[in-house]
């Protein structure tokens, strides 16, 4: 929250570069950092991914187990997504209960996947109102270089796409594992979040840590495979004009399409 003097100097430098059409790391304004995705990195998890977005690194695991459904949603499986910044990821990260930034991060990543209906939860019911399959997606940030929203979102999506769902059968009202039988997850669409930062009046895609520390506002827009918008979160201490918002939506659709191709390839679907 406190902006250090270094951040202010950095902001001056970054802003003067932006005026000349340049970013600190030489990228174009609408160019995300290279995305590297490895799936299946944690064999004990039913699905997993390690992704690097520039120097931001996230390891994500999906655990799948039978559970009781939510009382008012007896005909749906469970999807829960969390996020944590590990103490080794950032000298400023503190262990302990999550602060408001981390809570927002987890909720925004969760919302993008949930609102896009990426996973058809109606296909994950073992017995209506009694027992359903739960997907628990836990994101752990292991190295910090800005834009955790997109990094965690890509890692979650990649790990869900790569997961295998074990088979349970109801025996005497108890879900019982059927050994050796797994299925692919019921995926309907591939949500891709694109986060843009606003520094001065310049909008840049996928801000790195330097840009992140001095941006005035940000917006995360998640699009689905049809190029429709399915979740938005604005953050930061400044506002956007309507014109900027419309431009951001176009950028998110175009950039999202490119990222989606990368995610499709690694998961082999």
């Amino acid at each position: 929250m406190n902006v250090s003097i270094i951040d202010q100097l950095k902001k001056k430098k970054i802003l003067s570069l932006l005026k000349d059409g340049q970013r600190v790391d030489g990228r174009a304004f609408d160019e995300p950092r290279p995305l590297v995705v490895d799936t299946g990195v944690i064999p004990k998890a039913e699905g997993s991914a390690r992704i690097r977005l520039g120097d931001t690194e996230v390891v994500t695991g999906v655990k799948i187990q039978p559970d009781k459904p939510f009382p008012d949603l007896g005909d749906r499986g469970i999807f829960i997504c969390t996020a944590e910044i590990l103490p080794l990821a950032d000298p400023n990260a503190e262990p302990g209960p999550p602060n408001e930034d981390v809570i927002e991060l987890a909720r925004v990543v969760d919302r993008g996947i949930r609102e896009s209906s990426m996973i058809d939860l109606t296909k994950l019911v073992l017995q209506k109102d009694k027992s359903v399959v739960g997907l628990f997606v836990d994101n752990s940030v292991t190295d910090y270089d800005g834009n955790l929203f997109d990094a965690c979102s890509y890692a979650s999506v990649a790990s869900i796409m790569s997961c295998k769902i074990p088979k349970w059968e109801m025996v005497n009202d108890v879900p019982t594992l059927v050994d050796g039988q797994v299925s692919d997850p019921p995926i309907t669409t591939i949500p891709v979040s694109v986060t843009m930062g606003k520094i001065g009046d310049y909008v840049i895609v996928d801000p790195n840590a330097d840009e992140w520390s001095c941006m005035d506002a940000r917006i995360t827009i998640t699009t689905n495979s049809n190029g429709n918008i399915c979740a938005i979160q604005k953050g930061g201490d400044d506002g956007f004009t309507l014109e900027q918002l419309l431009k951001c939506s176009q950028i998110s659709i175009a950039t999202g399409a490119k990222i989606r191709e990368i995610l499709k390839k690694v998961s082999g679907s």
Partner: peptide, 18 residues
């Protein structure tokens, strides 16, 4: 004329978004 909060839950086409 500045938007200081925007969130979205649910699917919209680009035209619907605008």
């Amino acid at each position: 004329e500045k938007i200081t909060l925007i969130q979205l839950d649910g699917v919209l086409t680009p035209q619907e978004y605008e």
